[in-house]
Simulated scan of single mutants.
Amino acid sequence: MGQLMHVYRDKYEEYEKRHNNLFPKMREALKDAGAHNYSIFLDKETGNLFAYLEVDDVEKYNAIAESEECKKWWAYMEPIMDTNEDKSPVTLDLHEVFHLD
């Protein structure tokens, strides 16, 4: 999966710090949802974030949005990035057009 998000320009360091200290229960929830090889990249010129992750089952992964841990994480991240009314990050899902094994 590929996704685009946005972090506020003055919050780059805080964004990285928070991810380097990901809540243990959130880490566990991601693993339980089948997420692996998860990376987030920052364009320091724009604040745009590109997230890449592999999931075993997209529906199972998407269900994480209903978990208490995910909602806590969203509330924690809401002050430093663009979010929706429910505090989830504003996310644009990308369509894969090329893959090299």
Rank of each mutant, 00 (worst) to 15 (best):
R27Y: 10
R18N: 07
M81I: 07
G47T: 10
Y8T: 02
R27E: 12
K72Q: 11
C70V: 15
Y8S: 06
F41Q: 13
E13S: 11
D93K: 09
E54C: 08
N84K: 04
F98V: 15
H95M: 14
S88H: 09
Y38K: 07
E13L: 10
I64N: 05
A63N: 10
D86W: 07
A75C: 00
S88R: 02
D101F: 14
V55N: 04
K17N: 14
L22P: 05
E68H: 11
L22R: 03
T46K: 06
S67F: 01
D101M: 15
E28V: 04
E13T: 02
S67R: 03
F23N: 15
A33C: 03
M81P: 05
E69V: 02
H19P: 01
W73S: 12
L100E: 14
V97S: 08
V58L: 15
E16I: 15
H6A: 01
P79I: 05
L53D: 10
F41V: 00
D32Y: 04
L42A: 04
L22E: 08
K17A: 14
M1C: 11
A63D: 01
W73T: 07
I64F: 07
E28I: 09
D57V: 07
V7A: 02
I80K: 02
N62W: 12
P89N: 00
V90Y: 05
F98C: 14
L92E: 14
D57G: 03
E85F: 09
E54D: 11
R27W: 08
H19Y: 06
D93C: 10
F98N: 15
E13W: 09
A33N: 02
A65T: 13
V90I: 05
R18C: 00
Q3D: 12
K71H: 07
G2K: 15
E13Q: 11
F23V: 09
D57E: 06
H6D: 04
Y61I: 09
K11F: 03
M77N: 04
H36I: 01
M1S: 12
R27A: 15
E66Q: 12
E14G: 06
Y76R: 12
L4G: 09
N21C: 00
N84D: 03
E69P: 08
S39A: 13
L100D: 15
D86I: 08
G47Q: 03
L53Q: 10
E59Y: 00
A51Y: 06
N48P: 10
Q3C: 13
T83W: 07
T83M: 08
R18T: 01
